[in-house]
């Protein structure tokens, strides 16, 4: 005590004026706790990214939690099969708002090279995806770059407006499209939507 404190600073430096949106977004974007959902080989690169060499802690996202209840960012790293899709969907639903989804690698972005009977052709057919990271696997730098892009995007959100006006119904079901496979396209029906956060941009 008794060193540089609010009481000793000049009045003009003892407070900061900002918008509530800005400060909420600032807090959210700098404490993105990822849910590391390593489904196959991309999971290895995800571990490297969180480890000391690439050090995701520089961007406030190093606190990987293995329970969806504590996570903000779902990183789907790897090939998602239709059997696993139910588990991924449950993990997503258990995450509290606000939440974001990142697909890491071409497998989870589009199905990648697995154009087969078992693999979901893109996580976006069952979840709303915010950032896609291409690569097989993407380098940790690429994923970190997309985390920065996601942070820039979070900074443009309007949390106070949502609080006042209420969250509008927004389809969280994903596109339902399954790429490349015309015989699959017919299976999709529009599902009743759960209320969740509005789409950005």
């Amino acid at each position: 005590m008794g060193q540089v404190g609010l009481s000793e600073a000049p009045f003009s430096e003892s407070f900061a004026a900002t918008r509530l949106d800005w400060i909420v977004n600032w807090a959210r974007k700098n404490s993105l706790w990822p849910m590391p959902l390593g489904l196959s080989c991309c999971g290895i690169e995800l571990m490297a990214m969180i480890g000391p060499k690439f050090d995701l802690a520089r961007f406030g996202a190093e606190a990987a939690r293995f329970t969806p209840r504590q996570c903000d960012l779902l990183i789907v790293a790897g090939t998602m099969t239709w059997k696993m899709a139910q588990a991924v969907r449950l993990v997503y639903d258990q995450m509290p708002e606000p939440k974001w989804v990142m697909t890491m690698g071409v497998c989870s972005s589009t199905g990648g090279m697995y154009d087969s009977y078992a693999v979901v052709q893109g996580v976006d057919s069952i979840l709303p995806v915010d950032v896609y990271v291409p690569g097989c696997p993407p380098r940790p730098d690429a994923v970190i770059d997309s985390i920065i892009k996601l942070q820039q995007r979070i900074q443009r959100e309007r949390p106070v407006k949502d609080l006042i006006e209420g969250i509008p119904d927004y389809a969280d079901v994903g596109t339902g499209h399954t790429l490349h496979q015309p015989n699959r396209a017919v299976a999709h029906k529009k599902l009743p939507a759960l209320p969740t956060r509005p789409s950005q941009d």
């Binding site: 154009d115 009977y117 069952i126 079901v173 015989n183 299976a187 599902l191």
Partner: peptide, 21 residues
């Protein structure tokens, strides 16, 4: 005789999803 792109691979998932919702 099974096509390599599969036969309705998302059918079970969609059923599950509808029931859940």
């Amino acid at each position: 005789d099974f096509p390599h792109v599969g036969i309705e691979p998302d059918k079970l998932y969609n059923q599950w999803d509808e029931e859940r919702r």
